[in-house]
Design a protein around this nucleic acid. Structure first.
Length: 155
RNA sequence: AAAGCAGGCUACCUUAUCGCUCCGGCAGUAGUGUCGGGGAGGAAAGUCCGGACACCACAGUGCAACAUAGCGGGUAACGCCCGUCGUUCCGAACCCGUUUCGGAAAAGGACCAGUGCAACAGAAAGCAAGUACAGUUCGGCUGUAGUGAAAUCGGGUAAACUCUAUGUGGUGAAACGUCAUGUAAAUCGGUGUUCGAGGGCUGCACGCCCGAGCCGAAGGGUAGGCGGUUAGAGCCUUUGGGCAACCAAAGGUCUAGAUAAAUGAUAAGGGUCGGUCUUUUGGGGUCGAAACAGAAUCCGGCUUAUGGCCUGCUAUAUUU
């Protein structure tokens, strides 16, 4: 019988020196509090005035706006309660969406100086795997970049 | 071996990389950086009971409503838990009985207060009528028979209304306190100031209390921080008391605190279980699976969902 004692978790290992290099290359994979979309007002504004990009199962609503914090983008994620009654499943999907955004957000940050509010909606009916989410996320962000650059040129 | 019931334990692990949140140290005016540490559950769930806590000025009476129902104990409290008696059911034993032993169940106050209900059988089942035979003082007066658990009757039934006893004030952390912000404690109309507007106390009535505002129009602002908030009827060990639930003492210990809501993602390896292939066995290869489920003021219960493992009891079947 193997008994595994709780509370004997391994201490986190010392961070590698690669962090500083990353920062200099603008490859910032963090997702701190100030980059989270929290204002009720702004979210309502997003739904009424925002533009959307839909690449099933992810839908991105975005709006160019001024932000209170000194960041380029504030991002929120939503999974409708209607499609997923279980709180565990909703949490799981939100975490996957955040994770996919976190690892792919340099694509946005390195291509714009303007500030946006983002809201990712999950429209599927099934709990996805991470590769599915990431694939969809990449397509959505690529489309977003094309659109904002297109807008810049036109006027 | 499979099944049911009861109880206990557990809720894959390790490493690497990236990331989130809180606390503490250090550096910095600060944004922040860095080092160290903590970071979901047995049900966190349903929100069904009981409390703590907060506010409703004080917390009244009657009715209604709801809950509970042998007796005793435990507890902060309970509709919970423990013990016990009775009842019913199942099994075994013998001295074959309303017996003894073992196990299980629950809906255990009251049907001479009232109302209702009753399968089959029976002529008739609860304002009573009335069949057959016999007797007779000829009066449906008496007896017997027959059906049934029960028949001119204080029979049954309250997971039937009801009655009795006891208990329950309301709201619910979006409570509440505090700080910040705001041009607005402004304008117009109606109504009112002891002949009382409008409220509060419980759903209603009584009764009581506060009392100078209240309602509408048009128009304007906020939708945020902090406290409450995580050290508690806490957890662990030992000893003592008690049949037990549980209690007492001593020692040790600190164990999530988010708020559009942290506790995660990816990869590799290992263990477990299952399928399949292979091997004389040991074993090996390969594919797949890992449930129910996410803290939101905090406790004690109940209920429901659910993957493993272990123990006991019950009856069944098979083998020796």
């Amino acid at each position: 019988m193997l008994t595994v004692r709780k509370g004997e978790k391994q201490g986190s290992c010392p961070k590698e020196t690669t962090y500083c290099q990353r920062k200099s290359e603008h490859l910032d994979y963090t997702f701190p509090k100030k980059e989270k979309l929290k204002s009720k007002k702004l979210i309502e504004k997003l739904f009424s005035e925002g533009e959307s990009i839909s690449k099933f199962p992810i839908k991105l609503i975005y709006l160019e706006t001024e932000l209170s914090k000194e960041v380029l983008v504030q991002t929120g994620v939503t999974v409708p309660k209607k499609n997923f009654k279980s709180a565990v499943k909703r949490n799981r999907i939100k975490r996957l969406l955040r994770e996919a955004y976190r690892l792919n957000k340099p694509a946005v940050f390195n291509n714009t100086e303007r500030t946006f509010a983002f809201l990712f909606l999950y429209l599927g009916k099934e709990v996805p795997s991470y590769p599915q989410v990431e694939k969809s996320m990449k397509r959505v962000l690529a489309q977003f970049i094309r659109q904002i650059h297109g807008e810049k040129v036109d006027p």
